[in-house]
Amino acid sequence: MPNNLHRNSGYNDLTSEPSICLQVSSLSAGYGRSQILKDVSFCAKQGGITGLLGPNGCGKTTLLRALCRQLPFTGSCLLNGRPLEQMTSRQLARQISYIPQRSGIAISMPVIDVVLMGFNPVLCLLEQPSRAQKEKARGALRAVGMEASAEQDYQTLSEGQKQLCILARTIVEDASLLLLDEPESSLDFPHRHRIMELLTEIIRGQDLSCANCDVSSTAINEATHNVSANTSNPNAHRFSNTSGDTARNTLSGSSSDQQTLFPRKAALVTLHDPQLALEYCSRLVLLKDGVCTAILHPATDSLPDMEAALSEVYGPIRLRAFEENGRRSLILLPRG
């Protein structure tokens, strides 16, 4: 239903227009003869989390796999303006960081080694990670609060800690597009929010791994602009809707004067939990039976519109909103 695709085309949730990181146009993909995704179009912008929502089997994972070029697809996918199919695997690995539902690390290894894997796309075949890279990996572990476990066996970690460790790997990978496949599915409540908060910080370009790296002056300018927008009360928006263009600083609020930023990234996340999606995503792509039924902007779209769109995917639901610190939070309830 193409007339539904951009039912809220007049959105204006971003003060300065961030550039498009991923542009997907009429993408179709599937396994063998069975076509699962049909004519899906959307874009993911820098500095925001784009959520993919839908019931099981609607094609969320298929979409991510197609973007990782593990499935043949038709249609066009532009990553930073370049067609995906024109890139070499190595270029793709440098630009995209993929975080599976559960990392498939099957053998014992120290946590720091898992993080160091993130440097593989920039290392030569026989090259070993340098001292600076090891330092950076430790910084990334510090950023996710896992520095004390650096030498611990990855297999002995809890699921939540494993995901944090994989996020640290994503930080060192420094890719421009992050693809996450249901990162919250096996996590408990605090870890879910921790992961999504960290993800928000990563894509907003806060360089979490080291405070004194060299970055281009344009990035710093952009950084100061973003940080100054919202440093007055760093913890005010914990667990809150993060759409819009404000940079939060929940993680390292004390060191904001030293904050240096990388150019910003975009994230495309499939999520099981629509509540979590409404809280953290600046843009939601709703999928049903392989078709994109709507694209929502939780910060600005009207409640009835979103309620109707979500009901179409999840069955009848109610959406309630409340204001806190001047921003709207949304609660999803079953229609009782």
Binding site: C68, S89, R90, A93, P100, S103, G104, N120
Partner: peptide
């Protein structure tokens, strides 16, 4: 010499590929 790559191959295939292997 290829030890680092051997360890990377122990990771799930899709994940390893997106790590540039």
């Amino acid at each position: 010499l290829l030890h680092r790559q051997i360890i990377l191959l122990s990771v799930d295939e899709a994940e390893a590929r997106m790590l540039g292997v």
